[in-house]
Structure formats: C-alpha cells, structure tokens
Write a protein that binds this DNA or RNA. Structure first.
Length: 423
DNA sequence: TCTGGGGTCCTAGGACCC
DNA sequence: TCTGGGGTCCTAGGACCC
C-alpha cells in the first residue's frame, strides 16, 4: 500500500448548494419561502430533496411518498416531481459564477464544486467564503454553504459545519489545528466523507464515535479492518492530502440509462421498445463525450417488494467498440432475448455501456469513398445535431411506460411559455 | 396501491498458467 | 492423512457517493 503524499500546503474551498433541488423550485416561486418543500424521484416515488422545513417534519431522504402523504395535507407540504432540465440549467449558472473566483474549479456533482485557492492572498477565509455565498445568491438566487480547508475530507467537514451551525453564517474555515480538533470532536464519525453505514457501524462497535477519534486510530488497525479508501480518509483528516483537485472533468468509464416504469410491463415487445430507447439515449451520451463502447449490459427486474422477484442481466462484448445507434439497439435487443422470462411483471430495466474507449475521429480524405464506418459516423453526427427530434423505429415508449410526473414545475429556464405562465 | 438514477473504486475468489 | 505454490487476469458484488 502506498500513498502519494502531496505537499499539504494547498488550500481548497467546497461550495455546496443548500437543498439544491428544493431551492431551485423556490427561485421561480418565492411564495414557497419558509414552506416545507419536497422534490420527488421519477414516478413520484420517493423524496430526493427536502427543504429545511420538510426535514424538520421528519421526512427522510429516499422515503417513499406513501409513508408521509398525510403531511402533504396536514402540514401543507409542497410536493414537486423532479425537473432535471431546470436543475441542470441552474447548476450551470452556479458553476459559471464560481469560475469568476478561481481558474481551478472541479465540478464534483450537480450541486457542488471544489475550488483551488492556491496563490490567493486571503486574510479572512470565512469572510471570503461569505463573499462567494453572497455572489452566488445574487447571480442565481440559490443559497450555498462554503467550507475551506487543506484537504478534501476536511473541506467536507468544514462545509457541513457551515451548513448546520448558524454561528458560522454559511462559511467555515478549518485551517487552524485547534479549530480543527474542536470541530472534529463534535463531528459524528458517520458524517465523515467516505464513512458509510457499514464502516460507521464497525467503528461504533470499537467505541470510535467522532471524527477526532477516527483520526487518532492506529494505522495498522485501519489497514487490517477497513480498506485503502478509509486509510486515505484518515490521512486526510490528519491534514495530509491524498485526493487531488481534479480540474478537467474526465470522460466517464461507463454510461447507463435505467428506469423504473410507471406500470409493470409483461409484453416482450413493449419491454424491447423500452430497452431500445434506453440504448438510443445512452448512445447519444456516449457520442457526446466522444467515446465508443466495447461492452453492453442489459438488465431487467420485477418489483423487489413483491413475491416471485426476478432479476437478470446479460453482458455482451462489441468488437470493435461501437457508437452507432442502430447497432447498439440491435445488441440491446439480442441481450434482452437472453434473459426475458415470459410471465414476469417487469418494473425496471436498464442499459449500461462499458469498456468505453475514445472514438478516433478520422475524417476521410477528399477523394476517398467513405466506408461504412464513416457513413455511420456522419449519420450519427446529423442525428445528434437534431438532438431528440428523431425517433428510432424501435424506440417506442407506449402509454404507461412514461414517467408519472403529477407535480412537475415549469421548465422555466428552457421554455418561455412556462415561465410566462407563472406570472 | 405506492419504494430513483447514475456513477466510482475496491476486493475476494475463480480461472488459468507455469 | 497426505494431496505444490505462485503468479496474473477477470468479474461479480459490496460499499460508498451525490
């Protein structure tokens, strides 16, 4: 086991949007301020984002709607179907704003980014954090919290403190040893980035309850009972950076489209239509990052909450790697044929593209007759430019397979009509 | 009745080889 | 009862994250 120990003089900020999806809904409907808001997953299944007021009512992350539906009436909880087009657009606005502060930006997820602050002359880091906060609020209407520290794991702790401790006023710097010690002493080990349920449970059984206690553990015990990742986590808590700032977004190593259906599917043709449309969607994202896939997995699943649960997956390799939609659709259909079991009531399915490689874009010479490969690439370029206006013959989502979205808000940032309708 | 979607990394164990 | 000992490669599944 070896670690690349970077010089630990780096200073990082982590900017994280507060209750991101719920806050996005509020930006376009200020009357929701102060009210409990919940954003639902696809099919309006469970809670994937909650405003502070909704959290206070005890609505848990991932908790299905039917378990707290009574609160919608008794507590006037405002419920929204997920509106990812809106959230994606708001995310881009936040990231653009953050770029004004540093050229070293790592967009880590839809609602958070790490900022490299090396070489900055900053007297008061928390004041600087609050300045970022004010700027993002002014430009986007979204509240954020800012943590500042010297490793990613510490900056996560700082961000959490900024968010939860009102005395911090939205920004927290963990740069001073004594301040770090105090903060880690009141941070439950469960909240440390990289310590999930399983490891937290194990740690509690060894009487390790806080981040400070975790930091003081014997390396040999960690290496023996936890894994390399946990060892890195502990080093990072000690102020030794093991995780670098990744500035350019690397190409993904796998791309998937999976859905839970609104209604169960029994018919093979219908399931085939869904799987083909997943293949087409995934292929589009594959080409977007300039890749081709050397492998594909198709999986199908019945409801895990019912008897006779059935799930299966088929894996196929493609050589050479491909990105041509019709071929990927044919492959998906073939793989589905291997695992389809008549009589089962399918609730979920998905297509995963694996073994991604960079697609070499070689434009053919002027007088060269394009081969099949080039013709296919050109066709896909045209299709991608049309962006969703072309429907493949086999790509058919019938009634009932569409998402249930009873509570979707307007696509304010992409459809003028829906913005104007609010007024 | 009603329970999301999309990723990453690590590890144990089997297959295979010499 | 004994029944080699390593390597490497691959994959399925676990754990974790947002």
């Amino acid at each position: 086991m070896s670690f690349e120990l970077l010089p630990s003089a780096h200073t990082l900020a982590l900017v994280d949007c507060n209750n991101f999806y719920a806050s996005c809904e509020r930006v376009f409907n200020p009357s929701l301020n102060g009210k409990p808001i919940v954003v639902l997953s696809n099919n309006d299944g469970c809670a994937i984002a909650r405003s502070n007021e909704a959290k206070a009512l005890g609505i848990g992350m991932g908790e299905p709607l039917f378990k707290w539906r009574h609160l919608v009436n008794t507590q006037s909880v405002k419920v929204f179907s997920a509106n990812f087009a809106l959230y994606g657009d708001m995310s881009r606005r936040v990231m653009t704003t953050l770029q004004q502060f540093t050229p070293h930006l790592e967009v880590y997820s839809i609602d958070e980014a790490f900022l490299g602050l090396d070489g900055f002359k900053i007297d008061d880091h928390e004041a600087f954090g609050r300045q970022i906060r004010r700027t993002v609020l002014k430009h986007t209407g979204l509240p954020v919290s800012v943590g500042i520290a010297r490793t990613k794991t510490l900056v996560k702790v700082a961000n959490h403190a900024a968010k939860k401790d009102p005395r911090q006023q939205g920004a927290c710097a963990l740069l001073d040893d004594e301040v770090i010690r105090q903060r880690l002493s009141v941070t439950p080990v469960d909240e440390v980035w990289g310590i999930g349920r399983q490891r937290a449970k194990w740690l509690h059984s060894r009487e390790i309850h806080t981040a400070e206690a975790l930091r003081g553990m014997d390396d040999r015990v960690i290496r023996k009972h936890l894994n390399v990742m946990s060892m890195r986590t502990v080093y990072e808590l000690r102020g030794i950076a093991c995780l670098e700032l990744g500035e350019e977004s690397a190409a993904r190593k796998s791309i998937a489209t999976t859905r839970t259906f609104g209604d169960e599917i029994l018919d093979k043709d219908a399931l085939e239509g869904a799987v083909c449309s997943f293949a087409a969607l995934t292929a589009g994202r594959l080409r977007e990052q300039g890749s081709a896939a050397g492998g594909m997995q198709v999986f199908i699943e019945t409801s895990p909450f019912k008897a006779d649960y059935y799930t299966n997956a088929a894996l196929g390799t493609m050589s050479p790697a491909m990105s041509f939609t019709p071929h990927l659709m044919a492959q998906a259909r073939m793989l589905l044929g291997r695992i389809f079991r008549p009589g089962a009531r399918y609730k979920r399915a998905g297509v995963v593209l694996l073994d991604l490689v960079q697609q070499d874009v070689q434009s053919p010479g002027l007088y060269e007759v394009p081969g099949d490969q080039e013709k296919q690439e050109r066709l896909m370029e045209v299709v991608d430019q049309l962006d969703g206006h072309v429907f493949w013959a086999k790509e058919q989502m019938s009634e009932g397979m569409h998402l249930k979205q009873a509570h979707r808000s307007g696509r304010f940032t992409s459809r003028w009509g829906e913005l104007l309708a609010v007024g």
